[in-house]
Design a binder for these strands. Structure first.
Lengths: 240, 240
DNA sequence: CATTAACGTTGATAAAAATCAATTATTGCC
DNA sequence: GGCAATAATTGATTTTTATCAACGTTAATG
């Protein structure tokens, strides 16, 4: 049973989705798009809303989440620069099933639904890329489900630290430990546990020298150790 | 907050995916396909395997699941007649991320990878339908994740009974209560709990008159009661 | 730059769920 | 139809995780 952390298994593949498009298609998308600045904490779209277009995250970070009747919030994904948001509901022709909100100051380009669909329907390059991306998402989701259903909270905390470590990598310092900067509440909602349980486990990891923290910022000190705690297994590569 | 059970939120939409295809496309798929009988318990494909084509479930039921390092098995979906299987890995060009096995005697048509992709790339009708289907799957998965992360085992047992009730509906008797016929182990692996916990909760529902059972077969007696136990919220409809 | 509201941490306790162990049903098979 | 073998159930117990309550810290804001 292979072991190790393969960030690919937890990441959607929308980065570079518009690469390889014809100049005409790109122009049509560009002409229709508008870019806005979002402050930390702003909502991009809301569960139940009618999708009017898709969003391209130029800069910043966005959490995707779903709220429950009881007010709980499940964060199931964190988008980083270069990722696309909100296309599922446009494709499925349904209301947004989830909400999206910035977790840091961000810059987001909006492409109206009609323009996106026109380009999509005209471009087999784009539709094939999107099909490939969506096929990959399936594997990301079943990983997420399996981990939620079978791993302990401790294992899930470790796993999510690894996922976030990738997301908070800075271009300048690829090698340095990332500075994971997320509220404890968001982290707990991502792990699927109570905030207090999350804090206690972070405290343990800290005592064991696996991580350090400074205010809300978390740094992984011993990645192998965290990988061990996450108890990973499986992971598969490209075929063709 | 709207409440009620919307089975659509838990079902993929591959049924009828080949409707509306040109006669030529259908012919090309048909020429390439082979149909096999599978006995209950047979494996259709296995996690880590190389996808050589897609499967169309003509008759029977198939569980989709992932196994963990510790030998646990997470069942994340049950396919019924008319559904497509194994297309994600073909689209993503990755190994199978999950396994599929029949849970009753089944009849499955296999379409080789190349033939499927040729038809897909030639048919914008099919690729658009598939994009729509995959967009919908996203909402199914985030529902599943949110439920796993935020609901109690009791709530999840009730919810999965509702999901299975739909899957075990018989064409003859749409109105009659379904006969849910699945091993307690599979059920527990679907709910994401220990078999013993599942059994105890079924026992409670039985005492409360919400269900009845005869051997392994479960029948819902009071659907509203089970919906109440599942504590559902949300659910959104088509837009356009 | 002081304030204060939001956020984070810790401790004590309760609740939920898993595990272990033993027994009883069921079902596939000859 | 009887007989293993497999699956389901029940009870006792432990472990894990959530909840409640109090207090400390941080950082956003005027």
């Amino acid at each position: 049973m292979p072991t190790g952390f393969r960030s690919d298994s937890f990441r959607f593949n929308t980065k570079g989705i518009f690469e390889g498009l014809s100049a005409e298609s790109l122009q049509r998308l560009d002409d229709a798009s508008v870019t806005h600045l979002y402050k930390k904490g702003e909502i991009v779209f809301r569960e139940g809303g009618i999708p009017s277009g898709i969003f391209y995250l130029l800069k910043g970070k966005v959490k995707k989440y779903k709220t429950t009747g009881k007010g709980a919030e499940q964060v199931f994904y964190v988008c980083t620069a270069g990722e696309l948001l909100g296309y599922h509901a446009v494709l499925s022709e349904e209301h947004y099933p989830d909400s999206a909100a910035t977790i840091e100051d961000s810059e987001i380009t909006f492409i109206p639904r009609e323009n996106f669909l026109n380009v999509l329907h005209a471009s087999s390059v784009l539709s094939n890329k999107l099909l490939k991306t969506l096929g990959h998402e399936f594997s990301v989701f079943i990983n997420a489900i399996t981990n939620l259903a079978t791993k302990s909270v401790r294992e899930r905390v470790a796993l999510n630290l690894l996922i976030l470590d990738e997301k908070f990598k800075r271009e300048e310092k690829q090698e340095a430990a990332s500075e994971i900067n997320m509220s404890r509440t968001d982290l707990a909602n991502m792990v699927g546990t109570a905030k207090e349980s999350l804090v206690r486990l972070l405290q343990q990891f800290k005592i064991e020298g696996l991580i350090e923290s400074n205010g809300r910022i978390i740094r992984i000190l011993n990645k192998k150790g965290i990988i061990r705690e996450a108890n990973l297994s499986g992971g598969h590569q490209k075929v063709f």
